[in-house]
């Protein structure tokens, strides 16, 4: 019997090695696997490369930094691949000090590089970013009369995923804007670990509604953590 449910956070985090590339979805805390991220902080892996849309919120006096910022502040992140680094943030400080590498790229290119990795496409040309700083060092070809730059697929070693519902095969559904990077990161990583609000019996998810089929999923932890909490 296939059963991808694990019973503990330790089991969920087992085997994530130092030096891993970890993919973390989420947009404004919606669809962000914050419980698994706390688990990763506890687990101890270091020298990580994070693939994440935003490398952390602006500093807000009186508010604790979020989990991503704490992981960076513990010196456990070597590099972020992201579309946003704010100057006034923990990541911004670490980048300024030269202690954190940041590859800041267009958000659609980030998404498409991840999707391409999951779909077995090693590289693609896109007009996004042509003629800008992010094109430096990249091969340029003209397609349909426009300069396009070569972008490579972005695979992960590990993806941390937040689902709304899951079954024991690892079929997943998401809520509203909670999809964001979850479905594509689940496809792009060798080890895909899910936290789900709801665990349901096999056959209970309507087949037409499954966003991420279980083929992309390795481990599922049932954690009914409640609604996302927005920073403001």
């Amino acid at each position: 019997m296939i059963d991808k449910f694990v019973r503990s956070m330790a089991e969920a985090m087992a085997g994530i090695p130092d030096g891993a590339t970890v993919m973390m979805p989420g947009f404004g805390e919606v669809g962000a696997p914050n419980a698994l991220l706390e688990g990763l902080i506890e687990q101890g892996a270091t020298d990580l490369t994070l693939v994440i849309n935003s490398a952390g919120r602006m500093r807000v006096p009186g508010k604790p930094p979020n989990a991503v910022a704490r992981l960076i502040d513990q010196g456990r992140v070597r590099k972020v691949i992201t579309s946003f680094v704010r100057a006034n943030s923990v990541a911004g400080d670490w980048v300024r000090d030269g202690r954190l590498q940041a590859e800041v790229i267009p958000q659609g290119t980030l998404a498409e590089r991840i999707r391409a990795a999951g779909a077995g496409i090693p590289a693609f040309f896109t007009p996004t970013g042509a003629g800008t700083l992010i094109a430096e060092g990249k091969e340029v070809r003209e397609y349909q009369g426009r300069p396009c730059i070569l972008e490579e697929a972005l695979p992960g070693d590990v993806a941390l995923i937040e689902a709304w519902m899951a079954d024991r095969w690892g079929n997943l559904t998401y809520r509203e804007t909670g999809q964001n990077f979850n479905p594509i990161m689940a496809m792009a990583a060798k080890l895909t670990i899910v936290q789900t609000h709801n665990a349901v019996d096999l056959g209970m998810l309507p087949a037409n509604a499954i966003h991420t089929p279980g083929i992309y999923v390795n481990r599922v932890l049932h954690l009914p953590v409640g609604d996302p909490v927005l920073p403001r």
Binding site: F84, R86, N88, V104, I105, P106, G108, T109, T132
Partner: peptide, 10 residues
């Protein structure tokens, strides 16, 4: 240091 490309280039 602050690089906030987001979706603007796309």
């Amino acid at each position: 240091t602050g690089r906030q490309i987001g979706g603007a280039m796309d």
